[in-house]
Design a protein around this nucleic acid. Sequence first.
DNA 1: GCACCTTGCTCAATCGATGGTGCAAGCAAT
DNA 2: ATTGCTTGCACCATCGATTGAGCAAGGTGC
Lengths: 332, 332
Amino acid sequence: MDNDNKKKTIYDLAVLVEASPSAVSSVLNGTWEKRRISKKLAEKVLKIADEQGYRLNTQASLLRRDKSNIIGMIVPKYDNRYFGEIAEQFEAMARAKGMFPVVTCTQRDPDLEFEAAKELVGYQVECLISTGATDSDRITAYCKAAGVQVLNLDLPGKDAPSVISDNYTGARDLTNLIFRRCQSDLGWSGPLRFVGGRLSDHNTAARLKGFMDAHKERGLAVPSENIQASGYSADAAWNSLRDFYPDGPTGVFVNSTISLEGVVRWHSQLADATGSIRFGCFDRDPFGKFLPGNVGMVEQNVPKMLETLFKMVGQSKLVQDVILIPCKLEEF
Amino acid sequence: MDNDNKKKTIYDLAVLVEASPSAVSSVLNGTWEKRRISKKLAEKVLKIADEQGYRLNTQASLLRRDKSNIIGMIVPKYDNRYFGEIAEQFEAMARAKGMFPVVTCTQRDPDLEFEAAKELVGYQVECLISTGATDSDRITAYCKAAGVQVLNLDLPGKDAPSVISDNYTGARDLTNLIFRRCQSDLGWSGPLRFVGGRLSDHNTAARLKGFMDAHKERGLAVPSENIQASGYSADAAWNSLRDFYPDGPTGVFVNSTISLEGVVRWHSQLADATGSIRFGCFDRDPFGKFLPGNVGMVEQNVPKMLETLFKMVGQSKLVQDVILIPCKLEEF
DNA sequence: GCACCTTGCTCAATCGATGGTGCAAGCAAT
DNA sequence: ATTGCTTGCACCATCGATTGAGCAAGGTGC
């Protein structure tokens, strides 16, 4: 049978079916009717291809075709539900559209992001989705020079269309929710604290603005030590709170579920004060609802974001530059 | 400059540097010294390639080479830390070894798993890692016929080497921990309940055996209604518990963090009984520690699993069929 | 002045699949 | 018997990069 482990090619099949490689090729790629190959030969080819376990060499096929149908995505991390959902749904939607998705995880490392983007361009992706990229403009510049479409997701970029959450409104709503619950549960009215993320990051900046505006509406000033955007890691959030022992009610706006891990660690180690703390988190995690003190989470609308994104794939003239997708606020 | 959006090829570069395409190629792929190309020409090629934004066409390159250096992985879901960590670390390790990782998510759908495996073979992967695959033997058979190495991860298969956790021991240890805490916290000694997973799945079966053996050691019988392996979804776990209102202390072995979501939902809705429940979970989630009633979690040793796996990549003669990696038990 | 080696390249076949073009056989119409 | 159309394929250039083989120019030794 096929005890030789070399892969079968259309030339091998051609010998077996006693026909030409081009006939075999056209049968296998479905163009045989157009090429007036007889049904009889077509069936014979398919039968033998099946018996021999033939599989198209995608590399060779793509080299010859003009379209690759490959769509690439870079994603920072798989350590939270948000990016996990993005990757999963992106793959599902790409497949549904007959494309081949290639997703690669770049660890929030700008150089790795750029390397990965270059690699994907080498694989002839037709479109590259740059998700949460630290330096998306460098990627965009490279891809533009290579004639590859780029779309930004989650974080905006200057030179390519971007689909992102309405971070400002989501953050303002979440801040208001925390205010409301601090008032009703603790009889206390702020100001709140902001923990996690980076100020240099667009999303953190937009969320902080929503946070600040909610304070302004209440005529509240926010002391600068209340803003602790010390990075995207649980340890960073933990470090920025570890020496803080509240002497009264406290409300915390947590920027990302990763930061939430650090905040919850802090929260759980406070002896008495634990009951007089309320927090809310931008981004959702299914366990969040069950964490004591958590009053609500913002869920970014991933299906809607991806749906919007996929409408732009392959379009050359795109009107809008940054498209904002509303978030959903879940109160616990 | 490069305002034409067609991709540059070595032929385009050859014209610009006034040399042959083969000289250009050998400079770009680093074989130029072996091929006795002068340093002067090499530098000229590199300079112009850079100016022109040249990028190797991987498709064409791979077609000609014998090794692709692509390593593929299929993964069921990105909705939990375990598979997320596997994907992330797999990519990092593959890159560190100079390979190009392609990971694709197959939604626990056996047909999608198989389709994805076939696609990856078409992309000339040198090795396919089949992670948690429902029907790994079908994938193995296909890949063997195509001469592609397969390694199973997380779930074992008959016809290819497998690296999996020591589910039995991990589950027995976790069961013992739950017993211990039920005794010390509640003065109660079982029998416990088992929730989540599928009995047809090897891992669930091994974990259930560990669960049962821990009961046997204590001379305890487990009523059949205590075993609720109703699937891998939060809703399934929730459904299998929703009508259960404990009238005394209760201990639950939760099989996967996804099932834990359902269990916690149930737990949080019990009125009085909530304090007399203890549970533990196979698989870790950073928020688990903060869930009331949770006494511990089993963490699978992903770095060790992948390290073991990568040692086998490219090896033709492999001695051991199923390699068990010990888990770590974390008590809260 | 001739043989021989080294240097620095170029030539052309090749990887596997694709698709435009061409050609032979068969049949009908005149 | 000749023209013309249809059917059913085969031939071959091509995609971009790689690599064994070969060749011309220049240098060295005797």
